[in-house]
Every structure is written in structure tokens, then in C-alpha cells.
Nucleic acid binder design. Structure first.
Length: 731
DNA sequence: AGCACGCCGACT
DNA sequence: GTCGGCGTGCTC
């Protein structure tokens, strides 16, 4: 009689908001491997989980355990041991449920149990001996299709043919008559790689420093706009590829402009896989697989690309490392930049954080000697633009524009050059008020004013996207005279059209914001119009500050920098400073440029420092303020957010957590609960608790206790809560 | 998070 | 008499 063997058990991370794993019986003869995806019964549902570890003894009675339904990864685990370790670390660091973290690391196609059907692009060619005459005279489209294929000297893809106006039906019919056949994908010889550019001294020493790194090394590549940061990391990548390694390049969400992609692709033809938000799940999955199989050498992607499996990864680049889009702002609030650094440490390879305006976090790390700073101070062509403050106090303003600024705009246009006006407020006007009784259009779901969108004839809330028609008279007093508060980009655009219509008939006003670029391809069309180089005024929000170069812009006007200087969020000044410098950097990359900053507080020390001494000095000043106040990056910080149907429900939940923290006396500060600055948003009330500590370990202990307490508390009013470690927003 | 179970108000 | 509201508890 064979001895009855105790069943093999595994710990599985299941995508549910619980900070633990669940044990299952293992159904197969083959040994379980961490990182394997499995289909498991969970309550009365079936979920895709990830095997974390085989386990010796279960947390509950073995006979109560359910069995894994199916092992989804047959050959090798989807998540490599290195990625499992990274996920485990990150779940711990961000105090987020491991199951949700690991699921987040998987490409969407692998989050469900369906075997991902990689849609293979079919290629077609005309069969040998096929002739148009074999088709009926009336089958015009089939004849044309066959003719097209016969004329082509290489097989054509179904996609290409459909774009040319042929249908699946026509293809099928031709195939049935054996006039055409499937072909393998033509492998076009990759174009010759573009030669590397000549490096200037600063760039050369930066490349040498990166290439000379032994094992884990952190670099802060600080280079003014136009100083050739990209060339530095392209050559660092080239050196890695020569050694048979792979490179991972992270870029901000809007930063993946066609220019960026084509620059990397033309240097390394056929070796780049890109992953960005505009991509379909299928295409993303294909590129993800290419990377995992080692079929590409470079992955270029946004935030989530930090989790792409690259078996020979030897270098990580984080471009525009200060960019807020690296921080996921919902669910698992991880920072791809910080995870990139951890990943490089695990792999023992160099990581380069690059920016013209490094974050205070990274500058602090550089000051501590954790990061080696590589500076690029020279522009490849032309000088850095000159910044001037325009004191707008007590001056007549036309739609928020000072006459001095208007004069400069007129002069610039007259010289045949382009102007960029930066106004970080979209829509026509940020509020609608009755001139007679003072009634203001409020959002019904948020503590916010509705923004007027004139052309679309509606009011919209920029916080919950609620839309109402633009009223024609005041609902309270029926008067129909309206007051529009300060201009948004839409109003500015209309004003400028009107203002310059008489003097400069040929001037174009091009608005670039979320509203004018919401349609696919519209951004590219607008950018193309700018690139025609005719005199024009570009009006836009922060979208303008990212990724695009406008060579013919010689005047930049910055219209509403004041708001950021007086925000209650201490991080707003940092963001405003970065934005200002980034926008200024759009000016005169080839021709000398000027930047006029219109302000009502020309004596503001931060603004003065920035304008007179530059970003580095501004950042140092900000850092000393943070140090004095004991704020990040000098003190690690986390935020616990809660929202519920009523404010008191959110506050009670957070108070209970605070009580637990105070009772246990585990150190660190706990501030709040504070109602969020905009307490009501999308119909729910929001509050938060701020945790601050002197050391990381202390914050970690606070969070551990906060999470165990939070998970056990009763949740009334549909209460939802979340943890945000190293938050970038105050609430 | 989902989902079931369970206990109280206005409806065919 | 039930349908359905959401408070409560559980998920190996």
C-alpha cells in the first residue's frame, strides 16, 4: 500500500483588496513555480491569481482548502523570479494588496483566464498563375484587389488592404477560388541605423560615466532643454547593446510623441518595442512578449513599462524624471521612477534619471551623494531664453493680457515669428456669474464652479466631467447678463483672433489643450500647422510644455503662474517652477527667444530666484524651506484617503485609524483627519490623514498598523479608502 | 472588490 | 403579502 501523500500546497496572490495570500491545493504533477498564473475558485467566483510560493503548511485546515482549477502558464511563469521579488517589495513599500500589485504588473491580456490569442497579422499574395480574367467581370472589387496584390512585389497585410478599402469578404472569396494565398510576413530589411551624433565635452563625459559604471549606479542627468540629453542616453544604450544587454527607457505619458519614438527607432532600427497608453491591449501584449522573449533590445514605454520582463536588462533610463505621470494616481499608487531605481539595484545595473528640471526628491538624493550628477549646461544651438517678469499690478489688462505683452506679441508676429502663450486653464471662463443677482453656476456633485465652454454651449465641471447646457438666463432672477471670470484658453483664443484680425490678417491662432486635441490625430494636425512656420500664436495649457519642440517660437508668454505660488499644497511651487522652465524651454531653440512672465507678485522670492538665478537655485531654495519645515524629501510621508457618502463617515474611519496609531505609540506624526480641499467631489465626501515620520522604518510601522486597523473597521456609507506612500498631491 | 445573506420600508 | 434598499461578513 503506498503511503497517502499530503497534498502539495501553494500560496496564491488573488486580485482582491486584501493584504494577504490564499492557500490552495496544487492540481498537477509538475512542480509549482512562483510567478505562474493560475485560475482559482474564490468565494463563488473564479479569479486569475499568481503563485507566490509553494507552502509547507496551510493557514487553515488542509481539508478546507480548495484546489487550483487550472495552471494557466504551461511552460514558464509569466512573472520571472526577479519581477516577483520586485512586486513583493513594491506591495510592501506601498502597503498595497499583493494580489492587486501582481495583477497590475501583468499585461491586460494576461489578467483573464482566456488564452491570449495573439492576433497574427495575415499577409496575402497572388497565387502563381492567377489572373484577373478568372474572375467574373462584375466582381469589380475582387478584380481590383487581385490586381493590387499582383502589382505588389511583396505580400501585403490584411490591415494594409483594408486601409486601401478592401474587405475581409473580398479576401475570403479570392482565397476560396485559390487566386490568392496566405504568405509569411515580408521582413523588410531594416533601414540602416542613423549614425550617432558627435558629442560635446559635457555629453562625452556623461556617456563615459554611465558606461564606466560597475554594477548598480544611480545617475541624475541634469541638462537644460536642448542640451542633448537624449543623445547621451542613446549612446549609453548603444554601449549596452554591444555587450548583448537590453535597455529600458521610461518616458512620461504625453512624452511619447512620434518624434521621441522615431528618434530611438531610427538609431536602433527593428530593435525597439514600445508600450504606451494609446496602444491596444493586443499590440501591447505582443511587444511585451517580444521583450520577454528577448526579441527586442530596447523597451520604450510609459509608467507600467517599468514592469516589463527583460531577461538581459542592463540599463534603465527615466526620461523627464520629474514628471507627475510616473506616479499612478489611483489604486496602487506606485512611482515608476522609484521602482525603476529599485529594479536597477536588484539587477545591479546603472539607472539614469534625466530632466532639465529634476524633482526635489532627486536633487536631494544627489546632495546626499546617492546619485551622481551629470550636468549638461550648454545648448547645442543658441542661448537659453531670457526670462523677464512683467509686473501686471494695477495695469489695464485685456482678457488678462498686459499691454506690454500684447505689444511684444504684435512685434514678434510682424517679424514673421511665432508666439506661445501658456495659460493652464482650459475652457472659456472658469465660472459663470449672473451680473444682476450674483448667482454662480456650481457643480451639483462637487464643491466647484462649472467651467464655461462657449463653443460647445455648455457648462462643464472639470472635476467630475458633469455637463449642463449653458443657461440663457439666470435661474434665480432671469436676468440674462453674464459675468465671465478670468479667461481660459478658449476665450483667449477668441480674443486674440479678434484683436489681431485687423492688423495681421494672416496670423493664425492655434489652441492646444485637452479640448482641442481630444480627437485622435488632432494633436498631430495642430502641431503640423505650427511646424509650417508661418506667423502664429499658440495658446495652450501644460500640454504644450511636454515633448514638443516649436523651432519658430521666439516669444513665450506665461500668464497665470501666480496660482501655483500661493497654493496650500507645498508641492505646487515645485511643479510651477518646473512647468515654467519647461514652457520657457520651448522658445527659440534655434533662434534667440524671450520669455515674459506676467505676474501680480513680482517680488515673490521663489519667482525672483527662478527668473534671476535659474532652476537649480530655485530648487535649492525650495529644498531649504522643506528642510526647515520638516517636509518631504527630508521626512518620509504618506497619506491615507477616505471617501464616503457623508463627510463624518470618512472622518470617523480616519479618526479610528489615528486612535489606533496614537494608542500604540509607535512614533511619527499623524495629522488630521482633514477634509480634502475640495471636500465634495463627484458626489462623495473626502478626507485624509497625513502620516509623517523621521525615518522610513517608522513610517512603515505606522502604515502597517494603519492598514491592519483599516481592514478591520466597519465601512459605512460605501466608504472607500486608500494608502498613498510618497504622495505628490496634498489630498 | 464582488457577492450572498439578512433584515426593514413602499409597492404589484 | 413580496421587491429591494444597503449594512455585514467572507473569500483558502
Amino acid at each position: 500500500m503506498p503511503q497517502l501523500q499530503s497534498p502539495l500546497l501553494v500560496s496564491v496572490a488573488v486580485p482582491c483588496p486584501l493584504r494577504r495570500t490564499f492557500d490552495y491545493r496544487w492540481p498537477s504533477d509538475r512542480h509549482p513555480e512562483p510567478g505562474q498564473r493560475v485560475l482559482v475558485p474564490f468565494g463563488n467566483r473564479r479569479l486569475v491569481g499568481v503563485v507566490v510560493a509553494p507552502c509547507a503548511s496551510a493557514k487553515v485546515d488542509t481539508d478546507k482548502l480548495k484546489s487550483v482549477i487550472e495552471v494557466l502558464d504551461s511552460d514558464r511563469p509569466t512573472l520571472s523570479p526577479a519581477l516577483m521579488e520586485l512586486g513583493r517589495w513594491a506591495a510592501n513599500y506601498y502597503h498595497h494588496p499583493i494580489g492587486e500589485c501582481l495583477q497590475n504588473m501583468l499585461p491586460v491580456r494576461l489578467r483573464s483566464a482566456k488564452p491570449p490569442q495573439t492576433q497574427v497579422t495575415l499577409y496575402w499574395q497572388a497565387s502563381t498563375g492567377a489572373s484577373v480574367d478568372q474572375l467574373s467581370k462584375r466582381a469589380h472589387r475582387q478584380r481590383e484587389l487581385l490586381a493590387t496584390l499582383m502589382a505588389a512585389n511583396a505580400p501585403l497585410s490584411g490591415d494594409t488592404l483594408r486601409e486601401a478599402g478592401f474587405t475581409r469578404q473580398q479576401l475570403r472569396q479570392l482565397a476560396e477560388q485559390n487566386l490568392i494565398e496566405q504568405a509569411s510576413a515580408p521582413s523588410p530589411a531594416p533601414p540602416p541605423p542613423q549614425a550617432p551624433l558627435a558629442l560635446r565635452d559635457e555629453q562625452r563625459s556623461a556617456v563615459e560615466a554611465i558606461n564606466g559604471a560597475q554594477g548598480f549606479a544611480r545617475f541624475l542627468l541634469e541638462g537644460v532643454t536642448g542640451s542633448g540629453k537624449t543623445e547621451v542616453y542613446l549612446q549609453a544604450i548603444a554601449a549596452q547593446l554591444e555587450q548583448g544587454k537590453q535597455a529600458l527607457v521610461l518616458i512620461p505619458e504625453i512624452g511619447l510623441t512620434p518624434q521621441t519614438l522615431s528618434r530611438v527607432e531610427s538609431r536602433f532600427p527593428g530593435r525597439v518595442a514600445s508600450l504606451h497608453s494609446g496602444m491596444g491591449d493586443s499590440e501591447r501584449y505582443q511587444n511585451w512578449q517580444r521583450a520577454q522573449n528577448g526579441d527586442c533590445d530596447i523597451v520604450l514605454g510609459t509608467r507600467s513599462a517599468v514592469f516589463v520582463d527583460l531577461p538581459r536588462l542592463g540599463l534603465i533610463i527615466v526620461d523627464e524624471e520629474h514628471d507627475a505621470s510616473y506616479k499612478q494616481q489611483e489604486g496602487w499608487r506606485y512611482s515608476a521612477r522609484d521602482i525603476a531605481v529599485k529594479r536597477a539595484a536588484d539587477l545591479d545595473c546603472p539607472v539614469v534619471l534625466a530632466s532639465a528640471t529634476p524633482s526635489l526628491d532627486s536633487l536631494h538624493n544627489a546632495n546626499l551623494g546617492r546619485y551622481q550628477t551629470l550636468q549638461l549646461t550648454r545648448r547645442a544651438a543658441g542661448d537659453s531664453p531670457h526670462l523677464t517678469l512683467v509686473d501686471a499690478r494695477q495695469r489695464p489688462l485685456k482678457e488678462g493680457l498686459d499691454e506690454v505683452l500684447l505689444k511684444h506679441i504684435a512685434d514678434t508676429l510682424a517679424a514673421g515669428e511665432q508666439v506661445l502663450l501658456f495659460l493652464n486653464r482650459r475652457g472659456y471662463a472658469p465660472q459663470l456669474q449672473c451680473h444682476s443677482c450674483g448667482w454662480v453656476a456650481d457643480c451639483h456633485a462637487c464643491d466647484a464652479r462649472m467651467t464655461v465652454h462657449f463653443r460647445q454651449r455648455h457648462l462643464r465641471c472639470h472635476h467630475c466631467d458633469a455637463i449642463r447646457p449653458l443657461p440663457d438666463h439666470c435661474p434665480d432672477c432671469h436676468n440674462h447678463q453674464w459675468l465671465f471670470d478670468g479667461p481660459g484658453t478658449e476665450k483667449l483664443e477668441l480674443f486674440l483672433r479678434h484683436h489681431f484680425a485687423d492688423t495681421l490678417a494672416s496670423t493664425e491662432v492655434i489652441r492646444i489643450d485637452r479640448d482641442s486635441t481630444s480627437q485622435k490625430g488632432s494633436m498631430a494636425r495642430l502641431v503640423d500647422r505650427v511646424h509650417e512656420g508661418k506667423p502664429a500664436i499658440l495658446v495652450g495649457t501644460q500640454m504644450l510644455a511636454k515633448g514638443h519642440h516649436f523651432p519658430d517660437v521666439t516669444l513665450v508668454g506665461i500668464l497665470d503662474i501666480d496660482a501655483g505660488l500661493f497654493s496650500p499644497d507645498y508641492r505646487a511651487a515645485e511643479r510651477s517652477g518646473q512647468l515654467l522652465v519647461q514652457v520657457a524651454g520651448r522658445a527659440g531653440r534655434e533662434r534667440p527667444g524671450r520669455v515674459l512672465i506676467q505676474t501680480h507678485c513680482p517680488e515673490h522670492p521663489a519667482l525672483l530666484t527662478l527668473v534671476q538665478q535659474g532652476y537649480r537655485a530655485f530648487a535649492s531654495q525650495q529644498l531649504s524651506e522643506r528642510k526647515l519645515l520638516g517636509l518631504p524629501p527630508y521626512a518620509p510621508c504618506a497619506l491615507i484617503r477616505a471617501d464616503a457618502a457623508r463627510l463624518d463617515q470618512a472622518e470617523a474611519f480616519l479618526s479610528a485609524i489615528k486612535t489606533a496609531l496614537v494608542d500604540q505609540g509607535i512614533g511619527g506624526q499623524c495629522i488630521g483627519p482633514l477634509p480634502a480641499p475640495m471636500t465634495r467631489r463627484a458626489g462623495r465626501y473626502r478626507a485624509s490623514l497625513i502620516l509623517q515620520a523621521t525615518r522610513r522604518g517608522e513610517l512603515h510601522r505606522q502604515l502597517t498598523l494603519a492598514c491592519t486597523t483599516g481592514e478591520q473597521l466597519k465601512k459605512t456609507g460605501g466608504l472607500r479608502w486608500s494608502v498613498d506612500v510618497d504622495p505628490i498631491e496634498a489630498s
